[in-house]
Design a protein around this nucleic acid. Structure first.
Lengths: 362, 362
DNA sequence: ATGAAAGCGCTAACAT
DNA sequence: ATGTTAGCGCTTTCAT
């Protein structure tokens, strides 16, 4: 390996001078500078980042951790795998912030086995993988589901950490997430005030999901605020298109029963479920939005493509990445900052499935 | 910062012993081990990665460089931005290999201004960004279009490097890419032998694109091999849906002229263009695949969703990432390896737009 | 089983 | 303008 000493020897100067040239400092004679430059070029010298980091005692690197959560049965085009898009977008946001500072991003996907996400905190030591990573970065961005609360507490004590799209309620670390509540609120309000929908059914996600819970509450809030509206049933299932189909099936079965009546709007916990609902409805000859409006959440890619195009709420994924990164910078600069949660506004995306006139999709 | 010395002091042992405990070596008494463990836990000690790397003189990190190539006008759902999917998939492949070795991935997106990709090699020094990165990794994975040939030569001389989806013809570094030639060849063969198509039109990409060139050559090869088939015109444009629409427009105009005749198959340089062609054809009442077959290349997400579903060729993106990473490992282990190119088979994805019976897409 | 000490390649304060 | 030198935090012989 070519070191500073090799270059210094070749250019017949001291290592300090080489270092100066390397960092474009003045106080070096032009001719010397040229000699050093030549030596660097000839030797193909590359400064060792580890040594630099050690000497400067900072690394200019932030870590990003996700759980791999891979399902080999899912092709890359499956709707369910689209949640990956979320991460990719977040990452781009992070990267744009990093680039401005000329820092780098160290990405790690933990295997399902290595993450402690849902585990009920057995007081286990911090995951080794995560520990190793910690030593290589100035701060950590942690994806949702990577660590349990207890682990997070331990981790955040050791180094600056920001949780991405995690539980805004936990008190251990900073969080940056989308504002599920106001997003859903705006969506349901739209249904009620613009389209005059009154009997609102909910196709809910898993009870354990914090996101689903918040979205449900927001819907209930609108119903409470708007006299004349009512919750026309709740049908919960997995966050998948299949889950949506099943829920819609139960909903249809209920409406077909004695005195049964179709709701005039179906609010789904996410887009995948909404797409499943749409399919099931189409199979039964129910027209959307004419007979019933359907809305989703997330604005995943296929949402714009389905028939009718889905009205939904977009999570500001990229922005989440940017803000999380900025917050991390702030915390690195001042580790004593009290942990804060930042909720980013989610944007209502109006398409045709709510009853609005279709916009040329092209 | 908590260091090895702090832990040693607290546990009343030498730093060597702490280091031994840290790495699970034997030759440490159980009671001592326990004392050290306790000290580590109490202090919240995290080994400094930079110091470790320096002492071990290896980093266990590989770098991945891409050009940002961002167009802020494009929303994340635009077809054009789907090429990003390619990178994300490649990255997952890389990550899976890295994980097996417990290495990390250092990702950097260069700004358009920082990359030298298309630049005609002004003999400029290696980009500073890339240099800085080089010092932090054991090897580099370089995305297509990041560096020019000359730069690549310089870079590859300094550290292990593998080009991802770049020009397999360049002699400076290893390359891992999809086999465009045989993929296209199989696709066109399918059109000719299975569906009896004879008058094949080409909707070509930009002349400057190596990918487009290879795909064109492969198509010409099939035509040369199969008597009775003929090239029924070439219409080139940008690698975009709009480019495809324009090309289809010209094609239709030509067919409408005196003695004009529609081709019975249109081979497009990529899926985006094919989708544009499909749109334009639909607008003109031309039926696909009945009147004319249309095929693309890449198998981007919307390819399965359009009407009719697009027959195309899938690049083994994930596999490319895996192989590139493995090749990089090999080169790190033995830097004297002669540069090699590895072409991965691209898979024919048969849907309905070629004339095959539609498969239930769901 | 444990400790002492010599680097690893670099930065930066302090000479000169 | 340039050189000397003391760390940075760790791994790893080599002693004991």
């Amino acid at each position: 390996m070519v070191t500073l000493y090799d270059v210094a020897k070749r250019a017949k100067v001291s290592i300090a001078t080489v270092s100066r040239v390397l960092h474009g400092q003045d106080r070096v004679r032009e001719t010397t500078r040229a000699r050093v430059r030549a030596a660097i070029e000839e030797l193909g010298y590359v400064p060792d980042g580890a040594a630099q980091s050690l000497a400067r005692s900072r690394k200019d690197v932030v870590g990003l951790v996700y759980v791999a959560r891979e399902d080999p049965r899912l092709g890359r085009h499956e709707l369910e795998s689209m949640s990956l898009l979320f991460r990719d977008e977040v990452m781009r946001g992070v990267e744009s912030r990093l680039r401005a500072r000329r820092w780098s991003l160290l990405v790690t996907y933990l295997g399902d086995d290595e993450a402690s996400g849902a585990v009920p905190d057995g007081g286990a030591p911090v995951m080794p993988r995560l520990l190793a990573l910690s030593g290589k970065v100035d701060g950590l961005l942690i994806g949702d589901g990577v660590v349990s609360g207890g682990q997070l507490a331990v981790l955040a004590r050791r180094l600056p950490a920001v949780l991405i799209a995690g539980d805004p309620g936990q008190p251990y670390a900073d969080v940056v997430a989308a504002d599920n509540w106001s997003g859903t609120h705006a969506l349901v309000e739209h249904l009620v005030t613009v389209h005059g929908r009154r009997r609102l059914a909910l196709v809910d996600g898993p009870a354990a999901s914090p996101d689903a819970t918040v979205r449900r509450r927001a819907m209930e809030a609108v119903i409470a605020e708007r006299p004349g509206t009512a919750l026309a049933g709740t049908f919960s299932g997995k966050f998948s298109a299949a889950g949506g189909e099943q829920a819609a099936g139960r909903l249809l079965a209920g409406a077909a029963g004695a005195g049964g009546q179709l709701p005039d709007a179906i609010v789904c916990a996410n887009d995948q479920m909404a797409i499943g609902v749409l399919r099931r409805l189409a199979d039964s000859g129910v027209r959307v939005p004419r007979d019933v409006a359907v809305v989703g959440f997330d604005d995943i890619f296929p949402a714009a493509l389905c028939d009718p195009p889905l009205t939904t709420v977009r999570q500001p994924m990229r922005r989440i990445g940017e803000r999380a990164c900025e917050r991390l910078f702030a915390r690195i600069a001042d580790p004593s900052l009290p942990p804060a949660a930042e909720l980013l506004p989610a944007e209502l995306v109006v398409r045709a499935s709510c009853g609005c006139p279709p916009v040329s999709a092209r």
